[in-house]
Amino acid sequence: MPIPKTLLVALTAMWLRAPGAEAKEPSEHALGVGYTYDNLWVASGPPLAFHGLDFSYGFEVGHAVVALGALSAGLPLAGRDDGASFSLREIYDITFDADLWAGAGYRWQLTERLAVVAGGGVHLRYLDLNAPEVQAIEHLAFGVVAVGRVSWAFRGGWTLQGEALLGLDPADFVHGGDLRVGLLLRPSIRVGYRFGGVR
């Protein structure tokens, strides 16, 4: 079906926007690290738990009602299975996880420097543990997240950001019949920059 010309024009205008309008929309972009705890309740046996370190990029756009999200990737380091603990890096040659979430929230500017954001969104998580001698664990889960952020503008536009993420993943694209639910907890700390000034 051909796309109406007027729709194309409108979409292009939204994408380009007026330079003045773009400058008024504040945004914050931050890089940092986080600790990840991932617990998978599975039908086939005891839960599987993974602990790891992740590097992440987080963003936030808007004044009070904000669009926000984060992309992270990192290393699962330890696992727990049926009461036993494992060093994943000693068992697997490939240990990798990635996580993407996006959603919306509300920003409260508590003081000139301090702001709090609460929100939620949808979430996609990938975990890959692989080595020739052992069975590969692949996990691609989809679910929802709730997020709380604290942002402190410590110098000019520079901010220190703390984030706590709680994710629930009821769907797994690889082991759909086995996953009951996955629980993801990730506290992160990031350093960022806020464009468009502090409200």
Partner: peptide
């Protein structure tokens, strides 16, 4: 997908 049960660690 039903890729079977998760392998144990």
């Amino acid at each position: 997908c039903d890729g079977g049960p998760y392998p144990r660690i």
